[in-house]
Design a protein around this nucleic acid. Sequence first.
RNA 1: GGGAGCAUAGCUCAGCUGGUUCAGAGCAUCUGCCUUACAAGCAGAGGGUCACAGGUUCGAAUCCUGUUGCUCCCA
Length: 889
Amino acid sequence: MSISKTYQPKEAEDKWYSYWLTHKFFRSVPDEREPYTIVIPPPNVTGVLHMGHMLNNTIQDVLIRRARMQGKNACWVPGTDHASIATEAKVVAMLKEQGISKKDLTREEFLKYAWEWKEKYGGIILDQLKKLGASCDWDRTRFTMEDDLSEAVIDTFIHLYKKGWIYRGVRMVNWDPQGKTAVSDEEVIRKEVNQKLYYIRYEIAGDQLPATSDENTDNSQLVTRNYLIIATTRPETIMADSAICINPNDPRYTHLKGRKAMIPLINREIPIIEDEYVEMEFGTGCLKVTPAHDLNDYQLGQKHHLEVIDILNDDGTLNEKAQILVGEDRFAARKKIAVLLEEAGSLEKVEDYKSQIGFSERTDAVIEPRLSMQWFCKMGEMAKPALGYVLDGEVKLIPDKFVNTYRHWMENVQDWCISRQLWWGQRIPAWYNEKGQWVVAKTEAEAKTEFEKAGIAYQSISQEEDVVDTWFSSWLWPISVFDGFKNPDGADINYYYPTNDLVTAPEILFFWVARMIMAGHEFRGKKPFTNVYLTGIVRDKLGRKMSKSLGNSPDPLGLIEKYGADGVRVGILLSSPAGNDLMFDESYCEQGRNFANKVWNAFRLVKGWSVDESLPFVNDKAVNWFSSRFSEALQEINDNFGQYRLSEALMATYKLVWDDFCAWYLEMVKPGYQQPIDQQTYKATVSFFEDILKLLHPFMPFLTEELWHDEIFGTRAEMDCCIVAKMPVFVEINPQVLQEVEAIKQVISGIRNIRNTKQISPKDALELNIRHNSVVDYPAYKEMICKLGNISEVSMVSEQVAGAAGFMVLTDEFYVPLNENIDVDAERERLQKELEYLHGFLKSVNAKLSNERFVQNAKPEIVENEQRKRADAEAKIKAIEENLNVLAG
RNA sequence: GGGAGCAUAGCUCAGCUGGUUCAGAGCAUCUGCCUUACAAGCAGAGGGUCACAGGUUCGAAUCCUGUUGCUCCCA
């Protein structure tokens, strides 16, 4: 292997990814091993890799690689979803560029273009995942609109319809006038927007009101005799008004009760109704009621049996029912009607106003509440068991704070509007006769039979034009990717289902995760997965969500290019506790790259060693220590993984490698320049290194695989790869050696600190005197201390040493005699300070111990601990006082 | 308006059922070092009334109440 001074990721990444692929290491087929399964949250076929995907898929890859190395049959199923609205929009845009309008195409022609588009661009995001190192079983790649999965969707629809859980009805839906389709509540993004509040005069119809002397003179502006004023953000909808509503308790408007008002410009008469729903404080206290174009107004309209006047077309332009401004877009109409009202003298004033507006997640168009005939799926029955799985802990949400949110949603769940007015998607299996009567059936032939069974006459029948919501495919994903519908007792579904972990974003907890649990229960009688790991949102370091429009999202492939896939993986994981948003900054990737380089260089060091078999084994202490330390860290890492604390597992690994292995262990055993090393140390070190590569592999697959195949580990068989190496297992740790080396490390730090403060070069050897009171066997570590501290001579003493720089570790005293005279005053001051601190410390400990209630109430081990603290502090005080005496002497 | 959550070092975060593994980690900062594995580095150091105010307790970052500020979800 060529050993460059720094790690060069590019070559290793391409080389090993294709090696893994050709040797089928990602492939999983059912066998006798324990399965470990993850289904990918299928990215949208129109998508390109963004930072959220990077985070999400890095986590999945870490989990799946670790499971694989634990000997499980690890299966990560990749795929994409067909994203009906987004894809259809893309295809429409592409056709437009070619001068083709969707209107001029038949459904079949359009779908042909759509499939072509999918074949061409739909795989991009999956290829990008490969760059990240994702070890998906690519042979299992699925797509939500492929034949088998589509059939499952249709069968599901029919199944639920037969159960009475799917119905058709008029509802106020979220209409996307750009996509020309209904979207679900979950696909509406609310944003605060600056708007205008228009104050509009409506004449009161009929006789002039009696001229009374006003009791409410302060309100006289509003309670003018022959008109009332409403405040609205949507003046273009006044033509759709059905009523004016006032609060019956509003003293300002008692005179309006039972009267009628005239809509300005079109002079249509509408009733003035009363309802406590109207907030007296808001606007003028008079509310225009527009049932066709506002959800609340719709409900109010139902209550008061008001007329529904729909003045909008499906593209958001005004229709003939508006009478004026017909054909204008709703926003253009808003501007124009303001002018018309002004001219007519009906516009009282205009104010700035902020409010929440819904936008389509897919097209970013302003959502229009609209009444239409849609298909709905009842949620009540399915929500109950789905809630149970989570409350019982059978499905775990990580972090568990999401359980509350989940419960709240499931207890207040609304029926699911599943129809979409699109072509790209699974067409709803409903059939109509020429009278608009309908049946649900899989095929035309079956539909005819259904009609006949129902005794409904038909001449010709036609299928419903709408398709189902994409999520109506995705909720089946954990079952359908294993062909659980086509082959309910198949080997795959029986082996892999329920899956183990699902990694996804909290934003889709309800409309995807919850519904998968519903589907899992309904169709398999089992949960779809055990753990749901909810990642945070990737934000920039200013805390803003990463978005295309802000341009604050780094290009993930550019990052991989710059820092290496391993560096980026480490970078993104370092700061991503589950469920917390992560403030991403490139510097994390830099840290990741630096870490990769550290491992690389540690390897260069070991690789450069030559072995001399005649040398004695002198590093037994170091080897024993690291062996124990490794096991100790392993335990911690396993524990972190067990709790899905991936960033902490990574940090523990990072510190084990960088601090314990590189900074301490390698320095302990490293021979002098161009000196050989003894055989035993070498073997132990190479073996440690191999264990470290295994531990690192899930986080840094490429670097570790690259090093794994170096000749220092001996010759490897073709299939002997780090990706399938067995994870190290815990071995007995030796607490004594761990404790002693901890003390030795402090001694060495003490020596280095003296060098630093006294400006002594690391090259100048020093002497060390130890006056020892603790149980640490310092003489046994003489070699180690000399090597790491550049100490020429260690001697044990029984008295304080005058004229030396000193420090304490535990209760032991260390003296470094210096040639130059030490600054007695400074030294005394330092000791005085420490003494002061210790006295204060002792005082607080004594206060506790002399408190009867403490001794009585506290647990015995805590009291013991306090007693030990007292003994330690007393010993230290004694030593420092002796030292001060020596200084004085 | 309803619900949930957060506030600890300059930044990002750990601190489980109150008690030296209680004030921690990584990064950043500062001071020395090009010490032949690594300057993408080495050695050392300095940073915090644990948002604020009360309370419970022998003892509170940790439990309770209130205040302030922020975030998210739902309407």
